[in-house]
């Protein structure tokens, strides 16, 4: 049944026009992991489009391939076959060095466990991507970091170490870091997974505002009651999309 649906969408792909507003396009993406002697297909042929300004949720059971899918989009991992285009850049064809540069400028990543560097202050954590990608003048970076912290509402925490912040504050700092180089795309893997519901609502609202400002957000989530924030949900099961293409902007 899943295969039939897949075949159906697959068939219709060729006729979809390439749109100006398209940001992400995945064509027949598969991902095989070698486990033991055999191979395990974590993604079994994904076709997916995301337009600029969308706030897309990727949902599905544990092990369905959600993280694997967004790692294809960020270039953290490369597909076994298929194409990944982000803002017309063929991500699947970039080498590691090109990927690092491209990712630093085009994708802001937010992880479940915040992942701020523990020995840098919050502001320094946000300056770090600008430093690595050589974006903005060195003397303007801190100012920009403070502005981003203001945007996520924790400017007063700028000079503290991450360990001195609450979980919600750390996640806001991580979002500010994802925005450091002003990327068009934000990708988040269960960013609220470690937060209480009130804090996670606030964080979701932040993402929602960013999407409204024109950022494209792709987010993996487990939590059903956050669906009101998304413009669209993509449901994954066993490495295949079982719905989601239907809510197309065609």
């Amino acid at each position: 049944m899943i295969r039939q649906i897949q075949a159906h969408f697959h068939g219709s792909d060729e006729v979809l026009p390439v749109r100006e507003s398209r940001l992400i396009e995945l064509n027949s993406v598969t991902k095989a992991y070698t486990i033991g002697s055999g191979q395990f297909l974590a993604l079994k042929g994904i076709d997916m489009r995301v337009d600029v300004g969308e706030f897309v949720a990727v949902v599905g059971k544990s092990g369905s391939g959600k993280s694997t899918l967004i790692n294809m989009i960020t270039g953290i991992d490369s597909p076994t076959s298929g194409e990944v285009l982000v803002a017309s850049t063929p991500v699947h064809a970039l080498n590691q060095e090109q990927l690092a540069v491209w990712r630093g400028k085009n994708v802001g990543i937010v992880f479940q466990f915040f992942q701020l560097l523990p020995t840098l202050t919050v502001a320094e954590n946000i300056v770090l991507p600008m430093d690595f990608c050589n974006m903005y003048l060195a003397r303007e970076r801190r100012q920009r970091a403070i502005a981003l912290l203001e945007k996520v509402g924790i400017a007063e925490q700028a000079d503290k170490l991450p360990a001195d912040l609450s979980g919600g504050q750390q996640q806001r700092a991580a979002i500010a870091r994802a925005l450091a180089n002003d990327p068009p795309l934000l990708v988040a893997d269960e960013p609220t997974g470690n937060l209480d519901s009130q804090t996670s609502d606030a964080v979701m609202q932040l993402f929602s505002n960013l999407a409204a400002e024109g950022k494209t957000v792709v987010m993996v989530t487990h939590e059903r009651d956050l669906s009101r924030f998304f413009t669209r949900s993509i449901l994954l099961a066993d490495g295949l999309i079982v719905n989601g293409q239907a809510v197309s902007h065609a």
């Binding site: 060095e97 630093g104 992880f111 992942q115 690595f132 990608c133 450091a180 180089n181």
Partner: peptide
């Protein structure tokens, strides 16, 4: 290792 992973995720090149 984890921190190196994060740095690479936020745009650090291997050479850096």
């Amino acid at each position: 290792v984890r921190q190196i992973g994060i740095m690479k995720a936020i745009g650090a090149r291997s050479s850096q």
